[in-house]
Amino acid sequence: DYYQTLGLARGASDEEIKRAYRRQALRYHPDKNKEPGAEEKFKEIAEAYDVLSDPRKREIFD
Rank of each mutant, 00 (worst) to 15 (best):
D1V: 03
D1G: 04
D1W: 00
D1R: 09
Y2E: 01
Y2F: 03
Y2K: 03
Y3G: 00
Y3E: 01
Q4L: 12
Q4S: 05
Q4C: 14
T5P: 05
T5F: 04
T5G: 03
T5R: 04
T5E: 06
T5L: 11
L6M: 03
L6F: 01
G7S: 09
G7H: 04
L8D: 01
L8H: 01
L8A: 09
A9L: 08
A9H: 08
R10V: 09
R10W: 03
R10K: 11
R10D: 10
R10S: 08
G11Y: 04
G11I: 07
G11H: 10
G11K: 10
G11E: 08
A12N: 01
A12S: 11
A12T: 06
A12V: 10
A12W: 00
S13F: 03
S13R: 09
D14A: 12
D14G: 07
D14V: 12
D14C: 14
E15V: 07
E15N: 12
E15I: 08
E16D: 11
E16P: 00
E16K: 04
E16H: 04
E16W: 00
E16G: 02
I17T: 02
I17H: 00
I17Y: 00
I17W: 00
K18L: 13
K18N: 10
K18H: 14
K18M: 12
K18G: 09
K18R: 10
K18A: 12
A20N: 09
A20I: 00
A20W: 00
A20V: 04
Y21V: 02
Y21D: 02
Y21E: 03
R22T: 08
R22Y: 10
R22E: 15
R22M: 12
R23N: 15
R23T: 10
R23L: 15
R23A: 15
R23C: 15
R23W: 13
R23D: 15
R23M: 10
Q24L: 10
A25P: 00
A25E: 10
A25D: 03
A25W: 14
A25H: 03
L26F: 13
L26H: 13
L26C: 10
L26M: 07
R27H: 10
R27T: 13
R27K: 11
R27M: 15
R27A: 14
R27Q: 15
R27C: 14
Y28F: 04
Y28T: 04
Y28I: 06
H29C: 11
H29P: 07
H29I: 06
H29Q: 12
P30I: 11
D31I: 07
D31H: 13
D31F: 06
K32S: 03
K32G: 06
N33A: 14
N33D: 07
N33E: 08
K34P: 05
K34S: 07
K34I: 05
E35L: 11
E35D: 05
E35I: 13
E35N: 08
P36T: 15
P36A: 13
P36S: 12
G37K: 14
G37D: 05
G37V: 10
G37Q: 11
G37N: 08
G37E: 08
A38D: 13
A38G: 11
A38K: 08
A38M: 07
E39H: 13
E39D: 15
E39V: 14
E40D: 09
E40Q: 15
E40Y: 15
E40M: 15
K41C: 07
K41Q: 08
K41S: 07
K41E: 05
F42V: 05
F42G: 06
F42A: 07
F42N: 07
K43A: 06
K43T: 03
K43W: 08
K43L: 02
E44W: 03
E44N: 15
I45S: 04
I45T: 05
I45W: 00
I45L: 11
I45C: 12
I45N: 03
I45G: 02
A46G: 08
A46F: 04
A46W: 05
A46Y: 06
A46P: 01
E47L: 13
E47R: 13
E47S: 07
E47I: 13
E47N: 05
A48K: 00
Y49L: 04
Y49S: 05
Y49K: 05
Y49T: 05
D50E: 04
D50K: 12
D50I: 07
D50Q: 06
V51Q: 03
L52Y: 00
L52G: 01
L52M: 03
S53I: 08
S53Y: 03
S53W: 00
S53V: 12
S53N: 04
S53T: 11
S53K: 12
S53E: 03
D54A: 06
D54K: 10
P55N: 05
P55M: 09
P55L: 09
P55R: 11
P55T: 09
R56S: 13
R56P: 04
R56Y: 07
K57Q: 10
K57L: 03
E59L: 05
E59F: 03
E59D: 05
E59K: 08
E59T: 07
E59P: 10
I60C: 11
I60G: 13
I60A: 15
I60L: 11
I60E: 15
I60N: 13
F61L: 04
D62I: 04
D62Q: 10
D62R: 09
